[in-house]
Amino acid sequence: MDCPGDPTHPVPDRLRRPARPTPAHPRPRRPGGRLGGLRDPHPSAYRWATEDAEGEIEALGALTGHPVRHQYKLPSQDDVLPPPDALLVAPLTSNTLAKWATAISDTLALGLITEGIGLGLPTVALPHFNNAQAAHPAIARHVAFLREAGVTVLLGDNGFVPHKPRHGDLDAYPWQAAIDALPA
């Protein structure tokens, strides 16, 4: 049996982990319109929050005019962000969908979107998962639950249509549909 770190038992290349973490889903390409100023063609809060080697957190802060938060603040800290007019949740993975629909708030992003329902904030969700994941019975229940709670879930003909596993087309991700669904 191969043992990592043991030169007498090297791990085969096919089993090596990549040098840096990779997301479980592909990053959809950036939208045009109101969000077109993003510098990175594959925006990812994960990268901005954890791999800030090139100053991306500062760049995102400059773009929005506000500090970037990716962790909960302490109760003693002031909330320096203005209240949102609306929320856009994209790309919404099946994992985030399941957590959100069951009120699991184990990250700041999930906490904010869960709270958004209770605050009555206009919320648009644009999924991104394959049709094998979409076929799971819990997906339809979670989508229906969020829609009943007032969330605009763009899944189907007027939004995201799930693709076959490993056949996603990032250029076809319907960012504009999500942007158009936000209140003016």
Rank of each mutant, 00 (worst) to 15 (best):
A109K: 05
A59Q: 09
R166G: 15
G5V: 01
H9F: 14
P18H: 11
A184E: 09
V143Q: 04
G168F: 04
P12D: 03
H66M: 14
A134C: 04
L63F: 12
L74S: 08
T107L: 05
H142Y: 11
L38Y: 02
A98D: 09
T96N: 09
D40Y: 08
Q133S: 14
L74Y: 04
P91M: 05
P4K: 06
Q133F: 07
T114W: 10
P26M: 09
A90N: 08
T152K: 08
D52G: 15
A172G: 05
R17A: 15
H42Q: 06
L170V: 04
G159R: 01
G5F: 00
R147H: 04
H25T: 11
V68T: 03
Q133W: 00
D6K: 04
E51S: 09
L35E: 03
D180R: 15
P10R: 07
L119I: 03
R147E: 12
G37C: 05
P75K: 02
V68N: 05
P43G: 10
Y46V: 10
P174T: 06
G33A: 07
I117D: 08
D169P: 03
D6T: 00
I139F: 07
H167Y: 15
F145N: 12
A86R: 03
P127G: 10
P91N: 04
L170N: 06
P127I: 06
D79S: 11
Y173M: 15
D40I: 06
A59S: 11
P122D: 02
P82F: 03
H66I: 14
F145S: 13
T22S: 11
A98G: 15
S44I: 05
R27V: 06
N158H: 13
G116H: 01
A125E: 07
L154E: 03
T8L: 15
G36A: 15
M1H: 14
R14Q: 13
P31G: 15
G33T: 01
G116R: 01
A86F: 02
G61F: 06
T107P: 05
A98M: 00
P23Y: 05
G37S: 04
A86I: 03
P28T: 03
G37N: 01
L63A: 12
W175N: 07
A144V: 09
Y72D: 11
